[in-house]
Write a protein that binds this DNA or RNA. Sequence first.
DNA 1: TTGAAAGCGCTAACAA
DNA 2: TTGTTAGCGCTTTCAA
Lengths: 322, 322
Amino acid sequence: MITMAEIARLTHVSQPTVSRVLNGNPKVSPEIRERVLACAREHDYQLNALAKGLKGSPTHLLGVLVTDIANGFFADLTKQIEICARERGYSIILFNSDYNPDNEQEYLDVVRRYRVDGVLAVPIRETSPQWYDYVKRLDVPVVTITRRATGLDSFYVDHPTAGGQVAAYLADRGYRRFLFIGKEYDGKYVGFRQWLAEHGLGDVVTHQVLQNHDQFRQALERWLAESDLRAAVFAGNDIYALQVLDILRELQISVPAQVGVIGFDDTFMGQYLNPRLSTVRQPTAQMARQAVNWLLDRIEHADASLPVQRAFSTELVLREST
Amino acid sequence: MITMAEIARLTHVSQPTVSRVLNGNPKVSPEIRERVLACAREHDYQLNALAKGLKGSPTHLLGVLVTDIANGFFADLTKQIEICARERGYSIILFNSDYNPDNEQEYLDVVRRYRVDGVLAVPIRETSPQWYDYVKRLDVPVVTITRRATGLDSFYVDHPTAGGQVAAYLADRGYRRFLFIGKEYDGKYVGFRQWLAEHGLGDVVTHQVLQNHDQFRQALERWLAESDLRAAVFAGNDIYALQVLDILRELQISVPAQVGVIGFDDTFMGQYLNPRLSTVRQPTAQMARQAVNWLLDRIEHADASLPVQRAFSTELVLREST
DNA sequence: TTGAAAGCGCTAACAA
DNA sequence: TTGTTAGCGCTTTCAA
């Protein structure tokens, strides 16, 4: 690959002059500019971003850390991030933590090696001191996305609030027993439970982790048999909801007539499912766009203002399943 | 961020000695090694990959170019690529071409700027001379994945063959009219049509591009009204299939009783749809793994053997929709 | 076994 | 307006 020095030799100018031309510095004579540009074009010159970055100038690389790119929601988020970053001239290094904190930590090291200008992350344990400490030790800005991390720039939807929103809706809709699919400490479940408790429904809610089909089918069957109050399932994400719908069909339980189902994330497929899935929409594109722009502003203006905590509101998307 | 020179100063050795220690060169005295390692650990040293890459040594960066990361199939593929690359110590720069050849070309330039060691790509126009020429001009190995590109390393499933496989299955299943959803030049459609033509069914097959719901619904309705031969829809990917199922439900046409539907890719959701989706499985993980390993072997052993064309076979996954 | 010196390709400061 | 020089952090000779 041809270098500036080489072009300089071929066009009989100094190498810094080539640099000036290629960087659009106005104070070069038109003839030299022409000669250099022609030569660069002819030899298909490409800047060596490594050499440039070495001199301390920005690498225009962003680290993007997500938990699981195969999940449609994060795939979509990543896509938005990539589009937005590209618009501003940045490329992204992608890393998948797979919900493993060791991977997460390793990645933050890798990211430093490549001297990325900043990091966008969906952290695993956003509230843990380790995450906070680790981020604080990095020498580049880090923005947390989709989760709220105290003391760090965060662009997120408030999961407890969203959980409460779902509870209110389901209760209003006449449901009187509730099953949440996901981890007990999931913010959505916390807010869901809390709303129900505050409205006298605290003893009719439980949760279940979805591990595999059979285990879950049994658990669901058992739960349904326990009572004949009108029941609703709140799935922690649309993928769980999809699986719940499938099992209910196996059990020949009709949705929403016998059991209501609501998901979370409003992934693409939800609108086409049978029955169409009620769910909670996160403003993915907006969140991604604002997070990227905020990060890049911090980078480009060496902005050291206080961390922002930007909460986005969720929106109930009501379709056929509730 | 601390540098080798800094560590050298602190430990009273020369900077190259620090380099030796950090690179595990055996010929350094144990005491020095200890001192240097301790200092590096204490100051949380991280190699500057840019400086290293500048010296011509590998960057351990791979460019990954996909058409649409938001499509579950490519999200899955990317995930597998990332896992496999990380196992061998490489990080990936991700690009989304969005089926736009301009983006594609731009990315190949960006990738050169960062001096990636190699590229894995899902090209848009894998058979076009432009793609071939562009790849040939790059000075790093490029491996084409999921598509077959003549003259270049390719790890793919043969789409025409898969299309033929689908045709044979549908015909055998008693279907007598066929609609393919996708572009006319799609390899799957080519093979599909060819098989049908060879078996006297060439005049009962057509195709339709899915642009938006209404346009497609009308087209589908019209097509269904044209004849009452037993009809099947072959969707170019599972996402199309999902939409076809939805429209058929709107039209109150039962699947598979009145119309059969088969998808392509075997994305995760297919097994949970109602009805469960028949589809064609690509061996994603295997394809990704072999492609990455092949690419890395080329890189690491400066292997300049002839291009390989590795075709993977697809597998019909028969569920409820046909 | 260790150090000195050079150089990768670029930007930035300073001179001319 | 252009060139000279230095230096970013590292690896790689070559000497000692």
